[in-house]
Design a protein around this nucleic acid. Structure first.
Length: 573
RNA sequence: CGGGGCGUAGCGCAGCCUGGCUAGCGCACCUGCCUUGGGCGCAGGGGGUCGGAGGUUCAAAUCCUCUCGCCCCGACCA
């Protein structure tokens, strides 16, 4: 080695590292984490949804990945690495080649063979299992990787929160039966709790939609943040938590209103709002009637006036569907859209549960008229389902307490896949009785970059990032205020060596910059502890230990400095 | 994919509507001096295909057409 001192050192000296901080954030950064990651020099945008991680950002990802590996290994998972480039046939076998549309990057190799870039690796795992798993004695297995995924997102956004290329820790469990799957699932859920807690995140585990994964049970790990794209329903009382995509709720009951079944004249009043103003009746007293077309067949869908239809819930019942056009409404129901009511139709009618009792107002199926005093089961019949979108003010489906809705970032998810992939790719084993059975699979993902971004969203102030200690790029930053002062630099080097020797991650701001610049950058970058070496304290043979989060400063004598700093590292969150 | 916005120096922006001198400002950068506890001061300096192509015009950053890119809202999201 020609120059070991310098080589090793360069990674921790500000003057040698690529840390391009910016005074202003680029105008196309919107969310807090995006702005701060740009300004503090963690990432640079390469193209829409594609980011370069600079040294600081890469340090953070590696810290997170290390935690992921430790916790995965602790549940007996084995790390492997699978290709990103996949031949199409395996995806054709599971049907996802056609099910997934523009979101999958597709290409051809030189022999014109269809290929794609992996969005996820269920297919590859099932292929591998089909080759290598023979007997129940080979089970259970948990295989994982920390690998790049590619998805041609319709809309990349919010910095590294939604990108087209990202790394994911994805693991897959292989089990002999459902019961064993439950155990693997639980192991992962517990591991994910430990991972996210160690990363310093506030988070919830919520029930989620298995979606295209084709499984039955699924949960997501959600970090609350205004930058989140998802919303969840929470019940503080009984602990019910669910993504609003599948959440149910009880709409607050309405006061019973008096009144006989009678037609009222409502000239030109088409929307629920217009009619409610006109008749001076509240929204919950209305029935909203919506016509949908599923499989060429019309279906009338009823929800309460204050509710919003949840189309996914509807599709679970009637399959793929679409709203009928105005012309279709006219030709099928014989009345224009503003005046539809649920009475006297022959078609299939689905109604939200909340309309099962009470008296309502709805269209009269006649232009410019509505009808009051409509009672379910008497004036119309319907199939009763949960069809509304949950909203603030609703109550919990389990315990009827008031629910909360929060915006969240999805940082992880776990799915019970069952045997869908193993059946289609022939991943089977012989059980104790010697009969062939498909392997029962589970799939579990967690996104390091999203963890980092969520950590920033949850831990920052007006001056910059405040990293949780566990995922900060360094443990401490030494800030010698005047690098031209020999006494200052002697102490700086002393501390720098001493901390490094104790395996503390140190960044030393050895730049010849003014104190203000260093303080500003240190706050921006967000390393949890700052060691300030300035004339204030040095003349008393002291240094200052400053906590980034609280800005609280403690002066300690130089001779105890290393010990004090180390214990400060340990007590910082 | 629908709607909206924006591309002028590394970053943030002005100029464009109403075409006209050498395209401007702040920060950053380089040199020198000065300064050293919260983005310091003074002096000097470098850096631009005005996103791209075509058109109109004596003349285009500015007007017109096409195109590319990026952001936001929505749809979508294993």
């Amino acid at each position: 080695m020609l120059c070991p001192y310098f080589m090793e050192d360069a990674f921790m000296r500000f003057s040698k590292m690529l840390i391009p901080t910016m005074r202003e954030s680029p105008s196309d950064a919107e969310t807090v984490s995006h702005k701060l990651m740009m300004r503090a020099g963690y990432v640079r945008q390469f193209a829409a949804g594609l980011y370069v991680f600079l040294p600081l950002g890469w340090h953070v990802l590696n810290k997170i990945n290390k935690i992921l590996e430790e916790e995965m290994n602790s549940i007996g998972a084995q790390e492997i690495s699978m290709p990103i480039l996949h031949p199409a046939d395996i995806w054709q076998k599971t049907g996802r080649w056609h099910e997934i549309k523009e979101e999958m990057f597709r290409l051809k190799d030189r022999t014109e063979r269809d290929m794609c870039l992996g969005m996820t690796h269920e297919e590859v795992i099932a292929w591998l299992a089909s080759k290598e798993i023979r007997s129940y004695r080979d089970l259970p297995q948990i295989w994982y990787q920390i690998q790049t995924k590619l998805r041609d997102e319709a809309r990349p956004k919010s910095g590294v929160l939604r990108t087209r290329e990202f790394t994911m820790k994805d693991s897959y469990s292989l089990d002999a039966d459902e019961e064993a799957l439950d155990k693997s699932y639980k192991l992962h859920a517990d591991a994910y709790h430990r991972i996210l807690r160690r990363c310093g995140l506030k988070f919830y585990q919520v029930m989620s939609d298995p979606g295209m994964m084709g499984g039955a049970t699924a949960h997501e790990f959600m970090a609350p943040s205004p930058a989140g794209e998802d919303r969840i329903e929470l019940c503080d009382e009984c602990g019910y938590t669910a993504n609003v995509e599948i959440a149910s709720s009880v709409s607050p009951p309405t006061k019973e209103i008096e009144g006989e079944y009678e037609e009222v004249y409502t000239p030109g009043k088409k929307t629920i709002k217009e009619v409610s103003d006109f008749l001076n009746a509240e929204l919950p007293h209305f029935i909203k009637s919506l016509l949908f077309i599923a499989n060429e067949e019309p279906v009338l869908v009823l929800i309460r006036g204050d509710q919003r239809l949840h189309e996914k819930k509807l599709e679970k019942i009637i399959g793929l569907c679409r709203a009928a056009s105005e012309e279709e409404v006219l030709s099928i129901l014989g009345v224009e859209a503003g005046f539809i009511g649920p009475m006297k139709h022959r078609l299939r009618i689905l109604s939200d549960n909340s309309l099962a009792h009470g008296t309502y107002i709805a269209g009269a199926n006649r232009v410019d008229y509505h009808i009051k005093g409509i009672r379910p089961d008497i004036h119309f019949k319907a199939e009763w389902h949960d069809l509304h979108t949950v909203k603030e003010g609703d109550t919990c489906p389990e315990c009827n307490s008031l629910i909360k809705i929060e915006k969240v970032i999805e940082v992880g998810n776990i799915f019970k896949l069952g045997t869908k992939y193993s059946v289609l790719l022939n991943a089977v084993f012989l059980d104790k009785s010697g009969s062939e059975r498909p392997i029962v699979m589970g799939s579990y993902g967690i996104g390091p970059a999203r963890i980092a971004a969520a950590a920033i969203e949850q831990n920052h102030d007006k001056d910059g990032i405040i990293w949780p200690k566990s995922i900060a790029p360094f443990d401490v930053e030494i800030i010698p205020l005047n690098v031209n002062d020999t006494a200052t630099m002697e102490v700086a080097e002393l501390l720098y060596r001493g901390l490094k020797d104790n395996n503390i991650g140190v960044l030393m701001d050895d730049r010849d910059e003014r104190p203000g610049v260093k303080f500003k950058d240190a706050d921006l970058i967000g390393i949890p502890l700052h060691i300030i070496l300035g004339t204030h304290a040095l003349k008393d043979d002291q240094i200052e230990i400053k906590k980034r989060r609280t800005k609280e400063i403690k002066k300690v004598p130089i001779k105890y400095a290393i010990k004090e700093i180390i214990s400060a590292v340990y007590e910082t969150e």
